[in-house]
Amino acid sequence: MVTFMAAFNSPTFYKKNFFQLCSPGLGNEEVDNLKQTQTGEFWRWRESNWVNEKIEWRNSRYITVGIDVGSVSSQAVVMCDGEIYAYSNIRTGSNSLDSASAALNSALANLSMKLDAVNYCIGTGYGRVNVPMSDRTVTEIACHARGANFLFGPAVRTVLDVGGQDIKAIKCDSEGKVTNFLMNDKCAAGTGRGMEVFADLLSIPIGEVGDRSLDISEEPAAVSSACVVYAKSEATALLRKGLSPNEVLAAYCAAMANRIIMILERVGIEPELAITGGMAKNKGVVERLTRKIGINPLKTAWDSQLAGAIGAALFGYSLCKKGKGRTTK
């Protein structure tokens, strides 16, 4: 019984089996939503991993890994000669070391390749000093610029990374080299974590926040502060006043967009604009931002949260080409 309960309580078992067992026939998204309603964890977004079956890693010259341990999410990307071979995107736990390993293990889970085949591994992000398998660390600023250059093409000049707890505005050249940047990491206002708190407050699954904030008849005034603490009390006041949850979300998304614009304007907005990080998936914020600055952000088929880890793996590839990589068996 004890072992059963232990297995039942382990997050992976819970995630993978329980809801699928309880609700066969539901799609991933529906399972997510059902799970969120049942557990009350409305902030919980879907973790993922992926493998490019077309790439044969044995034939590649350099295999590089980028691990981006952020404050809220962690990603690992495996690249073969600068092409994405596998990736994973998971939630950062309370321990950066574990999160880095978990992200890498998740990326390597379905591969025949082992870690000793890797020529270079770079750690980046907030928890980069705690990536035990990394050969060196690079700031997430450099990595996001490089990653955005890969994901969105060389026309990108302004990269906006809205992460879990900070906002970075980066200007870069056609090679993805940073020319001007600014990071606001003192205050988490207008970041992903703030949005998670809001999703929980209003009992709306995080994946629906964007759509529902746009599903309103009239745009409400933005809450005066994107500060998570103040906005929360302001939102409660709005709910009490009789605004619908959708309208409250709209007011908060608008406040976030305003906050992001303030930071963007400090480095100057130059097209093309690319948005990386989890907030790029929130239509409510992105559309309001687009409306205000009048520039359409570029789109990508890849997960926008991967930009940092992709950049790190690409730097690893460049360093390998400079002869700094490990020799492998």
């Binding site: 020319t179 940047f181 990491d185 303030m262 930071i263 480095v267």
Partner: peptide
């Protein structure tokens, strides 16, 4: 590269 170190908060922009 122009590197802005610092932060902005309610009272203003503080960057070197």
């Amino acid at each position: 590269m122009l590197v802005h170190h610092g932060y902005s908060d309610g009272s203003g922009n503080y960057f070197i």
